[in-house]
Design a protein around this nucleic acid. Structure first.
Lengths: 335, 335
DNA sequence: CTGTTAGCGCCTTCAA
DNA sequence: TTGAAGGCGCTAACAG
């Protein structure tokens, strides 16, 4: 008794339907739904009854179509949601956005520039009011408001390379330098740097901080200690092996920890990024930590300031530097 | 020379603008942009030139306003993006959605039912084509397509409590039962269960699996071993303390691991959920693991099947049970 | 207080 | 192959 055609969900009721049901004009429905006080109690009740009867739902897409009206959307493009740092970042951004009545359109770039471009274009087509991006690469031209009809953009983890947009970053250089100075002051002279800088700003900055610290203390700059692409194992085989290592991110920190456990060799490990439950590793470990969620909040906050105009478009790019702190694991607190 | 009024980003160019610029009708622009082959090369080039000149961007909101047209959006409501499990879940869902041309509207419920309801309502107002929800509570009435104009819904981590919707879950009961049987077969007789069931389905199921395993082996059901709300410390103080513990989730697993490290007491730990870098804990640990990303993919997949009509609305609710597996840490592989 | 008119940006339909 | 008309759902701006 049915012809095989799949009926794709009947059309949703519109304001016109509600108006007809209530015996009023669409405008009265519109006004009622937006809480316009000029609607009489009588009409209001009738309208609300019809809304309930038809289980009507306002259509935000149609609403935001009206001239100049806003979509209430912001775009969020992260490199890898699977990484706890970016997911906490996303959480912070979503939270800040929600607090200000914005909804978040999410996109994962997978550290792929092409996908990032697609996402940004799609966001723009959906008329998001602004975009928060954790850039996949050092190419940021496509994130310039100039090519995005003036749509505000905020970069996170890296300052803009080209466009004059707001950003939320860490003091990667300073924090690394301070951490490495601390290793040196523990008495270490041969300190390796794990994790090549690649093309990313954070990596370059951390490497720069490492070398600055060595220079600060007059230690030799030995490329053998930081050019090992393949990792900690090679470093251990050097004739004059390192007694300590600074890992550029938590992936490398974990690799170093595993090496210590497996080889039994003593190696003092420092690293950038917190490591979950490192207190259970049973070994000394010092890391530079920060709050990704706070970065997310800050990024969304900057964006919303631009959107709301509380930061005028002409104002120069703002840059928020989120605080880092040093966390020690497996080290008894001083008595 | 300016009057203090903040000009909120000039209106974006429309098809009409492009048409005027190119000296053609808006329809020609529309056709060109959608790749309609019936547009002559001459006109097409003129249009594309104008599009570039004005940096025009199609307005997806306006497009999806046309009768019955789809928004290309799906809603994703998770309880806590800050938890790596849910963020990996989100990653999987976003990935599957993107593969099928859908964009994801993200919302974090913070395990708050009221917020979940708000989010779902907002999603509906934005005309998402379906919703994936990790429910915050056992109340699912508001997730019934019947009250959502037939909008498809997929639940993750918990089967629907009421509405007949699709879901993606784990075999919480079976996996826990098998794991606890394994602890028993290691020789343990006093096995605690950590993590009260609360109101959530997963907790109840895991608890049920634990008790089933005890029953299977004829061990006594001692409430003292699973009613300790405050945790492992209390359990250790029992006159006949447990020699092993099954932790209902990774938060409790970590608590148990800390207890072992701090107290030095031997305690065999089993748990539900993987624990990042547990191989570095230097202690035996067995966990029930699964892939949150796969759950996310599966959930989005089910949803998209409903949206596309490849699963008819009349078809009964589907339920995907994602595989779990057991992972051992800190235990030498058998020779 | 309520309704009418017109139009947001785009696309389906139909005519040229 | 191109264009004109009309409408998607909603809401400013203006009557009444």
């Amino acid at each position: 008794m049915h012809n095989g055609v799949v009926t794709t969900s009947r059309p949703l009721p519109t304001m016109r339907d509600v108006a007809a049901h209530a015996g009023v004009s669409p405008m009265t429905v519109s006004r009622t739904l937006r809480g316009d006080p000029s609607v009489s109690a009588d009409f209001r009740d009738r309208v609300l009854a019809s809304v309930a009867a038809l289980s009507y739902r306002t259509n935000d897409a149609a609403r935001s179509l009206k001239a100049g009206r806003a979509s209430g959307l912001i775009g969020l493009a992260v490199t890898n949601l699977g990484n706890p740092f970016y997911s906490e970042f996303a959480l912070g951004a979503e939270s800040e956005a929600a607090d200000h009545g914005y909804r978040v359109l999410l996109g994962n770039t997978g550290e792929d520039l092409a996908r990032e471009k697609l996402l940004v274009g799609d966001f723009a087509s959906r008329r998001v009011q602004g975009i928060v991006v954790v850039p996949a690469t050092a190419t940021h031209d496509h994130l310039d408001p100039a090519v995005l009809d003036g749509m505000p953009v905020v970069l996170a983890t890296s300052p803009p390379n080209g466009p004059g947009v707001d950003s939320v970053i860490l003091d990667d250089f300073g924090a690394t330098r301070a951490a490495v100075l601390s290793v040196i002051d523990e008495g270490h002279r041969r300190i390796a740097f794990l994790g090549l800088p690649e093309a990313l700003w954070t990596g370059r900055e951390r490497m720069r901080g490492y070398r600055a610290a060595l220079a600060d203390r007059g230690l030799p700059d030995d490329p053998a200690l930081y050019s090992a692409d393949a990792g900690i194992a090679e470093l251990a085989r050097l004739t004059d092996p390192p007694t300590a290592v600074f890992a550029a991110n938590n992936r490398h920190t974990l690799a170093a920890c595993r090496h210590v456990h497996e080889s039994g060799r003593p190696l003092r490990i420092y690293g950038f990024d917190d490591v979950p439950s490192a207190d259970l590793f049973q070994m000394p470990l010092t890391v530079v930590t920060y709050s990704p969620a706070e970065m997310g909040r800050a990024a969304a906050g900057l964006l919303i300031d631009r959107i709301a105009g509380s930061t005028a478009a002409e104002e120069p790019p703002r840059r928020i530097i989120v605080a880092t702190r040093v966390k020690n694991y497996g080290i008894a607190a001083p008595a």
